[in-house]
């Protein structure tokens, strides 16, 4: 009788263990975020750190974001033109390209690229700090490693992501304009005019910006948490880096659906 009961109970036991472990990790990550937010505001040293982090997270990501944005815009222009010209409405190309970029592709693709380019670097950096016991050394000296290391990085992601997403969309719209107007012969006035008539500043630009602010916070949060929580070995760091990219990409895509549903207000 006993082996039979074990056979039934073991999977349930494992499932419970797994669920509790996940829940605990989520709770740790939440407490971690709460402890890293500077309620009192950053001092002058914190500000200098913030500038340095915005440089390494934001400015150094510019090249990949701008090139990717331009190509995504050009592809949208090409694809959109072939589809729209079937319906004789290639004048709506500007509307299509700009709405696609502002509402979806800008925030989402930027966040995915950001997770790969900056998130993985953050995790590896913090993981290595932990492995080389720099974090313990800080604690010994009475410096709060959360405030000293994590806070400026979180703020940098929070600030850099919306700027990167905006630039992505902007470059993409100009890429679409380049393909549409110069190569495919869409009327320039129709491209910009239809775009201006149907893109709303609040409805599309600001809502897209809001999305990228949320994504910026989530991706950086996952990256720094995974780094801080990693096993202090070379294997642990590599695992944490992979997890950062996978988890933050999935989180961005899932959150995107939730945010879009809330913004469109149809669910």
């Amino acid at each position: 009788m006993q082996p039979f009961i074990d056979l039934v109970l073991n999977p349930i036991h494992k499932l419970g263990q797994f669920g509790l472990g996940r829940l605990q990790a989520l709770g740790r990550a939440g407490l971690f975020l709460l402890a890293s937010i500077p309620w009192g505001g950053p001092g002058s040293a914190g500000f200098r750190d913030l500038i340095k982090q915005i440089y390494s997270i934001g400015v150094r990501s510019l090249s990949i974001i701008l090139v990717a944005g331009f190509f995504v815009g050009m592809v949208l222009g090409l694809q959109g033109y072939t589809i729209l010209s079937d319906f004789g409405s290639s004048a709506a190309l500007g509307t299509m390209v700009s709405l696609t970029l502002l509402r979806e592709l800008g925030p989402v693709v930027t966040a995915l690229l950001f997770a790969g380019r900056a998130g993985s670097a953050l995790t590896a950096e913090i993981g290595l700090m932990k492995a080389t016991e720099q974090i313990s050394a800080m604690e010994m000296m009475g410096i709060d490693p959360l405030k000293r290391i994590i806070t400026p990085r979180l703020w940098a992601g929070f600030i850099a992501m919306p700027i990167l997403a905006l630039l992505f969309s902007l470059v993409g719209i100009w890429g679409g304009a380049y393909v549409g107007i110069n190569m495919l012969g869409v009327d320039e006035g129709a491209y910009w005019g239809n775009m201006q008539a149907s893109v709303g500043f609040y409805e599309d630009v600001i809502k897209g910006l809001f999305k990228s602010v949320v994504f910026g916070l989530v991706v950086t949060w996952i990256a720094v948490y995974k780094g801080f929580d990693s096993m202090p070995t070379s294997e642990g760091i590599s695992k944490a880096t992979t997890e950062t990219v996978v988890v933050s990409s999935l989180a961005v895509l899932g959150l995107d659906f939730v945010l879009t549903a809330i913004m469109l207000g149809s669910v």
């Binding site: 502002l102 905006l166 902007l170 893109v199 500043f201 910006l209």
Partner: peptide, 14 residues
Amino acid sequence: GIIALILMALRVSG
């Protein structure tokens, strides 16, 4: 970033 926002407001969303 600020210039991009202004361009978005004036040129793209009209």
